[in-house]
Design a protein around this nucleic acid. Structure first.
Lengths: 145, 145
DNA sequence: CAACGACTTCAAGTACGCTTGAAGTCAAAT
DNA sequence: ATTTGACTTCAAGCGTACTTGAAGTCGTTG
């Protein structure tokens, strides 16, 4: 039981290149697996771990953040709670942004205007964006001047 | 009226560095603005345009994709419809993934397990991920073997 | 008129996330 | 015994998205 996977098999099952898996290991994202005559042998659970890394990476976290995220859990300290909370907030912002983007693009598709920027609905979507993100200074600028 | 912005003002209002704005212009993302004795003068609408670029960039599109997205609208052709439709689909996938990630992280926060991977709920979230994305081969592997 | 601050170009450098290539090892099949 | 295929390490290269630094140009201000 618990058949071990070679790096090639892990790559096939996850869709992640072997070179990338070695790179992730170098970065400390994946634990160094057992070796059989020099070759890596992964436990089946590695598939899940790789999945988590992919998920977090695809969702906009850097590999260092993913590392911190995974590694944070072991110590007895509460540091990880803070980290998880921050990530959760980031993720909520990301989802909200993606939904604004979705609205904007969907409207772009539906709107007959040649120049999308002439369209008030489109502008409205962007205005929603302006309210959040790093454009808060803009908000103050507009109201103070 | 229609007071023109210097690159510095545009940077302040958008939160994007002047160097990045020039880079975006080089890439063809932003149209070359008017010049007053060599210096760029942007129309106020540039703030909105920069906002759109930021939005799409932050949501995971490359700058080339953003360029295509913005530029696609001008020609009389229908090529842009296809592009918008594809982007919309990509975006829906991204949102779905982000929501899975959110669930996973939220659970990680709520779950008392020391090792998150021991938790079946966590595994369930990841399993949801495995069903989509590039892990479809894995799905076939699992069922064929 | 000198200095200041904000702008200009252009080339080079940086961080991230990998990929590619060279050279070698190992187990199994021919 | 040699060939095949999958693996190994290590260094270098690449695409994306910028930043940084040098050297120079403006318009204003003292």
């Amino acid at each position: 039981m618990a058949e071990q996977l070679t790096i090639g098999e892990l790559a096939r099952r996850t869709g992640v290149a072997t070179s990338a898996l070695r790179y992730w290991e170098d970065l400390g994202l994946l634990p160094a697996p057992a070796r059989v005559s020099g070759q890596r042998r992964y436990p089946p659970s590695a598939v899940r771990l790789v999945g988590v890394v992919m998920l977090l990476r695809d969702v906009g976290f850097t590999l260092r953040e993913v590392k911190a995220f995974i590694a944070a859990r072991s110590p007895a300290g509460d540091g990880w709670r803070e980290l998880y909370q921050r990530k959760l907030t980031e993720l909520d912002q990301r989802i909200a942004q993606a939904q604004v983007a979705r609205t904007v693009i969907a409207h772009g598709l539906a709107c007959p205007h040649r120049d999308i920027f002439e369209c008030s609905n489109f502008a409205g979507g962007v205005a929603a964006l302006l309210a959040g993100s790093s454009l808060e200074e803009a908000h103050e600028e507009i109201h103070s001047h």
